[in-house]
């Protein structure tokens, strides 16, 4: 019976939902079937909302445990718990559009987000340095093309070296584009494959509770 709820039933739900959405997006179907397909797609948002609640509870429990056990960085867990409770509390009691909630968003959340993202600048630098170390012929080709693309994007260089802009445009439009289109076609075919396997219940790892 357990196997029916954990394996057979989810497989059938997945199969029916997948087929209904597929048929409604390909064929001209009666309005009720179209509505069912739309509802299935809307249901994804509802499931995600429930999953976020589950995730928030897990986050809270993990940080409470960390604080109680006084594990390393437990003081940060207190900051997190206070922030979590305060944001949820203000959001629920005063509303998402209230001045207090917007203050948290504009003056705490946004600057913190920007600060974290700005560190990426330095990491791009170190990654580029390691990439540009010539280890083999492929790395040499990468280095040459990367240098041409970087120089081709710098106005001070392009105005002194004639033809660099045209060369840069050609690199982006021909070798780069053909490579990325090849990857995109492969991805499209791969996504169809994984979708067919999932709808038919052949994608083993997705079936929870089964080996």
């Amino acid at each position: 019976m357990m196997s029916f709820y954990k394996s057979t039933l989810p497989k059938w739900i997945l199969f029916i939902c997948g087929i209904v959405v597929l048929i409604a997006s390909i064929f001209v179907v009666p309005e009720p079937l179209k509505n069912v397909s739309n509802e299935i797609q809307h249901f994804t948002s509802i499931l995600t909302s429930f999953a976020i609640c589950l995730g928030a509870v897990s986050l809270g429990i993990n940080n409470v445990k960390r604080t109680v056990k006084k594990q390393s960085g437990w003081c940060y867990s207190i900051v997190l718990l206070i922030s979590l409770i305060a944001t949820i509390g203000i959001g629920i009691s005063l509303g998402r559009k209230s001045a207090n909630f917007m203050w948290i968003y504009n003056y705490l959340y946004m600057p913190l987000q920007a600060a974290i993202y700005s560190i990426l600048f330095f990491q791009v630098g170190t990654a580029v340095y390691r990439t540009f170390i010539v280890k083999n012929p492929t790395a040499t080709v990468l280095l040459i093309f990367a240098c041409l693309t970087i120089l081709g994007g710098a106005p001070a260089i392009t105005c002194t070296i004639p033809g660099l802009t045209a060369l840069n445009d050609w690199i982006l439009a021909v070798p780069q584009m053909s490579g990325s289109r090849g990857i995109m076609i492969g991805l499209g075919v791969g996504i169809i494959g994984i979708s067919v396997r999932t709808i038919l219940g052949r994608e083993k790892a997705y079936q929870m509770g089964e080996e």
Partner: peptide, 15 residues
């Protein structure tokens, strides 16, 4: 490709 020791790219990950 630049940073990792090994890379699996594109549709290979679906396989």
């Amino acid at each position: 490709l630049a940073v990792c020791d090994r890379c699996i790219m594109g549709e290979e990950i679906y396989a």
